[in-house]
Amino acid sequence: MFTLIGDIVGSRKIADRAAAQQAISAALNRVNEAIDTAQPLEPTLGDEVQGGFTTVADATLAALLINLELSPDIEMRFGLGKGDVTVHDSSRHPLLQDGPGWWTAREAISTLEGRRGTWYVGPSEENPPPALVNAFLLARDALVARLSDRQQRMLLLSFQGRSQREIAATEKISQSAVSQAFAKGVRAAHDAQLTFGKA
């Protein structure tokens, strides 16, 4: 299973932590509806979230969608892993579990050393190999970080299947403005993620 662990960047600086946790839970629910999960995304202890996926593409997309679903003042970083997972108690939530899948995701998030972003740790013989996955994640996250808040909303809407005309109506701007935003990075971020999913 491809595993995901996320935690809040700068959580101690958030004034209303209860509201932040509610926003994160709502974002996880929306992402769970958008992506097929092997193990649904759910909050855990210590400002963290976790979930499991059948493909690395779905795991990378989930990390991106969570951040796009959240308001700009709440940002998460993500560690992705690959390996077997053992659930010791399925009646508990969060699930009581461990195994190499979670150990590698923990190693990945530790590699970030507090920095924003997404990182993957998996078997070197995996296809695609971890180095290739991380090259994609570095480029994708840097591109998304350069988008304005509005452009990031457009990116989220594009992943939801909205047309440029529908995005213009939602944002109350002209279709030409949406087209310009797509040309300045929204389309590249969208298409890069979808192309990676086909690799």
Rank of each mutant, 00 (worst) to 15 (best):
K184L: 11
D191W: 02
A139R: 12
S124W: 09
A15I: 14
A142H: 07
G79S: 00
D7Y: 11
R165C: 06
P40H: 03
L138Y: 11
S90K: 10
S11P: 08
E107S: 14
A26W: 08
F136S: 09
K198A: 15
G51I: 05
L147H: 01
K198T: 06
E171R: 00
A192G: 02
R116C: 06
T44A: 09
L156A: 10
A169S: 05
A34K: 14
W119F: 14
D98L: 05
Q50C: 01
R12A: 13
N134I: 11
G99F: 08
D141M: 05
L96G: 00
R92V: 15
A139Y: 07
M154I: 03
G117Q: 03
Q152C: 10
G197S: 06
K13S: 15
K13M: 14
N29P: 01
E125M: 13
P100V: 08
L143V: 05
T55M: 03
N67C: 10
V49L: 03
L112T: 04
L156Q: 10
K13P: 01
A57R: 04
A62H: 00
L157K: 07
Q97W: 12
D191F: 02
A15Q: 14
A169P: 00
R30D: 06
Y120P: 00
F182P: 04
A181R: 12
R146F: 01
G10Q: 15
N134V: 06
I173K: 02
E107R: 15
S179V: 09
A108M: 04
P94V: 07
L155Q: 01
L64Y: 04
G99S: 07
R140T: 11
P123E: 11
G197Q: 00
G185T: 01
L156R: 13
V121S: 11
P43N: 08
V9A: 06
G46Q: 11
A169W: 00
R153E: 15
Q151G: 13
P128A: 09
A27F: 10
P100Y: 08
Q152D: 08
R30M: 08
G46D: 13
L28N: 09
G101Y: 07
A63Q: 03
N134S: 10
I167P: 01
V178G: 04
L132F: 13
V56W: 00
H190V: 02
S176E: 06
S174Y: 03
Q151W: 10
E33K: 11
P128G: 04
L157N: 06
N134W: 11
A139W: 11
Q151C: 09
E171M: 09
E69V: 05
R92P: 02
S90M: 11
W119K: 13
E75F: 04
I109E: 02
L156T: 04
M76G: 05
I24K: 08
K82D: 12
I14G: 00
P128Y: 01
L112C: 01
N29K: 12
H93K: 12
G10A: 09
N127S: 07
A23Q: 15
L137G: 11
Q21I: 09
P72T: 04
S91Q: 13
V31Q: 07
L70G: 07
S163Y: 08
